[in-house]
């Protein structure tokens, strides 16, 4: 019997695929924003509201990750925004190679920023770097304010947390101060926004942040 020290990180293969995505993005000067959150947290609704406010000065596209159906992609296409639906067929998260092939189907020379809507799930997507520049987690107040401590990996890696459906706050047990406090412990650099897509509140600060993220990224890419 022979004991061999290996000390190999198991995410190496997946990270190499993410690096290839980063290469494609750098070559085309495109920013990639990975949008994650629970099923139904309001990811697509946030993207719809964001795209309406962004598209005048930023050329955007969307990759919609879902287990099944084209419904989310159709909602984005209705806005006249280029979109591709990525179906994982049972897979509970997107992988970098799926994003890579979808990016190659877009006309990247005419695009500044691509949003990826990941599969609704607070566990698995946190484990997969897609090659994105920025990670956003959408957390609706209806889910409860304990989610940050229950799913620390997802929130620890977030560059921004969008607390959504703020219009439902009077009906829910959700303390936005708790989210800010726990985000401070998990990742003090993360920005926290509170929005309601229905009442169209809180969106300006969030949209400014997206602009800033794209600008920072494109100066880095140059």
């Amino acid at each position: 019997m022979m004991r061999i020290e290996v000390l190999k990180r198991l995410q190496e293969q997946s990270e190499a695929e993410a690096d290839e995505v980063r290469q494609v993005l750098a070559q085309n000067r495109v920013t990639l924003i990975n949008v994650m959150g629970s099923p139904g947290s309001g990811k697509t609704t946030l993207l719809e509201a964001t795209l309406k406010r962004l598209t005048t000065d930023l050329k955007c596209a969307v990759l919609e990750g879902d287990l099944a159906t084209l419904q989310d992609a159709e909602r984005i296409a209705d806005l006249g925004v280029p979109v591709a639906q990525l179906l994982t067929e049972g897979g509970c998260h997107l992988k970098p190679n799926l994003v890579h092939s979808a990016l190659l189907r877009l006309d990247l020379s005419a695009i500044d920023c691509v949003f990826v809507e990941n599969v609704g799930n607070l566990v698995c997507p946190a484990n997969f770097d897609l090659g994105e520049h920025t990670r956003v987690v959408v957390l609706s107040v209806a889910e409860g304010d304990d989610k940050t401590s229950k799913y620390p990996y997802m929130f620890k890696q977030a560059d921004a947390v969008v607390v959504s459906k703020l219009d439902l706050l009077p009906l829910c047990r959700f303390d936005p101060a708790r989210t800010r406090r726990e985000m401070h412990a998990l990742n003090p650099k993360a920005a926290v926004f509170e929005i309601s897509a229905v009442q169209e509140t809180g969106l300006e600060a969030w949209v400014r942040w997206v602009h800033h993220a794209v600008e920072q990224c494109s100066t880095g890419l140059r």
């Binding site: 022979m2 290996v6 990180r9 401590s149 990996y153 406090r181 412990a185």
Partner: peptide, 30 residues
């Protein structure tokens, strides 16, 4: 994790989080 939202017995509400995301094959016996 369930108590990180509350006040510590010392009166503090400041908590820090320490977690590892290691995923490492350390050794094999062949």
């Amino acid at each position: 994790a369930e108590d990180a939202a509350d006040t510590c017995s010392c009166g503090s509400r400041e908590f820090s989080f320490e977690g590892s995301d290691d995923l490492v094959l350390t050794s094999v016996d062949l």
